Amino acid sequence: MEPLTEAQIRASFVNTSKREMNQASLPDLDELTWDRLDVLGWQDDKRPQLAYVVVPTDDGPVGIMVRTSPPSKLRRRMLCSWCQDTVTPDDAMLYVARRAGAAGRKGNTLGTSICAGFSCSANVRRAPTASEVGSDDPSDRAAWTARRIEVLRERSRHFAQEVLTDPS
C-alpha cells in the first residue's frame, strides 16, 4: 500500500458526513509499515464501536467507516471474509458499513466479517504450515503467500466497490 497522508485518508471516506470524517481518529501514520499493508484498518479511539478501513483501488483509496456491536459475553468464532486465516487466534467481528450516497442516507448497509484487530495484512504474510501448502518447498510457500495477499486485496476491493454501488 502506498503511504497516505491524513488529508488523503480523510478525503477518501465515501460513506461519512463531513462532521463524521473530521471527527474520525486516525492511527499514527508514521508508525505504519506501509509496504506490508494491503488494507489500512483501525478502531476509533474515542468511540470503540466505530472503525475505519482504507482500501487501495485503481481509482484511488476508498475510506469506509464501519460499525460493530459491543463485545458479547457469548463468544462465537467467526472466519474473516477477507484473509480467511484459520490459524491465527484473532477473532473476526461483523462490521457493517453504510453504503455511499443516497442509498446510505436511506439506511442501506452492507456487512462483512473482518479480523477484530484488522490484522489481515499480517495474517496473509505469516509463514504457512506444511499442511496448508502441501509442500515444504520454499517456492511453493512463497507462491501460497503471494496468492493469499492477492486474494485479500481482491476481497477488500470488492467490499469497497459494493459500498460504492447503489443496489436499487
Rank of each mutant, 00 (worst) to 15 (best):
E2G: 11
P3W: 06
E6H: 03
E6D: 07
A7S: 13
A7G: 10
A7W: 08
R10H: 04
V14M: 05
R19N: 03
M21V: 07
N22S: 14
N22C: 05
Q23F: 11
S25T: 15
D28Y: 08
D28P: 04
D30K: 13
D30W: 12
E31L: 06
T33I: 11
T33S: 04
R36P: 02
R36G: 11
V39F: 06
L40M: 07
G41H: 01
W42I: 15
Q43L: 10
Q43C: 05
D44Q: 13
D44C: 14
D45Y: 08
K46F: 10
K46Y: 11
R47I: 15
R47Y: 09
Q49K: 03
A51I: 05
A51D: 07
V53Y: 01
V53S: 02
G60E: 12
P61K: 04
I64A: 00
T68F: 10
P70E: 11
P71D: 11
S72V: 08
K73D: 08
L74R: 12
L79Q: 11
C80P: 12
W82V: 08
Q84I: 04
D85N: 06
T88I: 01
D90L: 12
D91C: 03
D91H: 04
A92S: 06
M93R: 14
L94I: 05
Y95R: 15
Y95C: 09
V96I: 14
V96R: 12
A97V: 06
R99G: 00
R99I: 10
A102E: 13
G104C: 03
G107V: 05
T109I: 09
G111I: 08
G111R: 07
T112S: 07
T112P: 00
S113P: 01
A116I: 07
A116K: 08
F118M: 05
F118R: 09
F118Q: 09
S119Q: 12
S119T: 15
C120L: 01
S121T: 02
A122V: 08
P128L: 05
P128H: 06
T129A: 03
A130D: 10
V133D: 02
S135F: 00
D136P: 00
D136H: 09
D137R: 08
S139A: 10
R141T: 01
R141G: 03
W144C: 03
W144T: 01
W144V: 02
T145I: 13
T145W: 04
A146V: 09
R148K: 10
I149L: 04
E150A: 14
E150C: 02
E150K: 01
V151M: 15
L152K: 00
L152W: 00
R153A: 05
R153S: 04
R153I: 10
E154A: 14
R157F: 00
R157G: 00
H158M: 12
F159K: 02
F159Q: 03
A160L: 14
A160I: 05
A160E: 06
Q161E: 11
L164F: 01
L164R: 03
T165L: 13
T165I: 13
D166V: 10
